[in-house]
């Protein structure tokens, strides 16, 4: 199957060798991955909590989203660089790991939601109920991404 042979090839690539080489490589990249998701999900959570009306009330969700957007992007970029690096270290096993598959599904949904509905809600006037729904769903999706990621090591 094409996919499997691609993952097998990836496991023997120079990137995979580097990730599997020095023993500090994986934990360092993983730590950067943690900082990336803290930056992205942390700043998204700030906007979500504001949408839910749970704090940061001295500015609108729109202002918060606009102010924090560059940092959310920086976090997403760091996450999307370090994630595939870790994946390459053991591609064949990750791709068949149910927790990994769950995480990737949630990540696709979370990113899709973030750049469509979430973005619209923070850029235009919507009803308070719509804002709360969007904030809650966003928090739920990102929570699922992190939980799925943590489960990879246990499944």
């Amino acid at each position: 199957m094409f996919a499997v042979s691609f993952f097998e090839w990836l496991s023997t690539s120079a990137v995979a060798n580097a990730m599997n080489g020095p023993e500090w490589a994986f934990p360092v990249v993983e730590s950067l991955h943690f900082m990336g998701f803290a930056l992205s999900i942390g700043t998204i959570a700030i906007v979500d909590l504001r949408l839910l009306g749970l704090g940061m009330r001295r500015q609108t969700a729109r202002e918060l989203a606009a102010d924090l957007d560059p940092w959310t992007w920086a976090g997403i970029a760091l996450m999307l660089i370090t994630g595939p690096l870790m994946f390459s270290a053991d591609a064949v096993n990750y791709h068949s790991n149910p927790s990994f598959q769950f995480k990737m599904t949630c990540l696709m949904l979370a990113l899709l939601f973030h750049f469509t509905v979430h973005r619209r809600v923070t850029k235009s006037e919507v009803s308070p109920i719509a804002a709360k729904l969007a904030g809650g769903l966003s928090l739920l999706l990102w929570t699922a991404v992190v939980a799925g990621g943590r489960m990879i090591a246990f499944v």
């Binding site: 943690f34 900082m35 998701f37 803290a38 930056l39 999900i41 942390g42 700043t43 998204i44 959570a45 700030i46 924090l68 940092w71 990102w142 929570t143 992190v146 939980a147 990621g149 943590r150």
Partner: peptide
């Protein structure tokens, strides 16, 4: 992990 992101977000801000 989730609280690292929550605390991290608030700390970063």
């Amino acid at each position: 992990l989730l609280s690292i992101a929550l605390f991290g977000g608030m700390l970063l801000a």
